[in-house]
């Protein structure tokens, strides 16, 4: 399947990636080629075939409802690019 520059821009917005015009152009070509290769899958008849989401069958694992974590706020905010005391600071969010 071919992909258009407009589609590339739409996908880039969904993925929150700012692209330069050169990147947009390159991706249009690259992704087009790769998708063309992927389109070969359509040659296969998969009617009645179950999709595989998990390759190994595992019993539903769960844990008991117990609080195991003690507050460690300072260590957890140590990597924050911007903070205000114990809160993460971000540009103003508009509802």
């Amino acid at each position: 399947m071919k992909i258009s520059v407009e589609q590339i821009r739409h996908v880039a917005l969904l993925a929150r990636l700012a692209l330069t015009p050169a990147e947009e152009e390159e991706l249009t070509t690259n992704l087009g080629q790769i998708l063309q290769h992927m389109d070969k899958l359509n040659q296969l008849d998969t009617s009645g075939v179950e999709p595989t989401a998990h390759i190994v069958a595992v019993d539903t694992p769960w844990r008991e409802d117990v609080v195991t974590n003690a507050p460690d706020t300072d260590a957890l905010l140590a990597n924050a690019p911007a903070r205000d005391d114990d809160l993460f600071l971000v540009p103003k969010i508009i509802d």
Binding site: M38, L41, N42, L44, T46, V49, E50, P51, T52, A53, I55
Partner: peptide, 14 residues
């Protein structure tokens, strides 16, 4: 067309 199809082909490969 892509994701679901690929999951099915994954079954065939397995």
């Amino acid at each position: 067309a892509y994701y679901l199809k690929a999951q099915k082909v994954r079954t065939l490969i397995r």
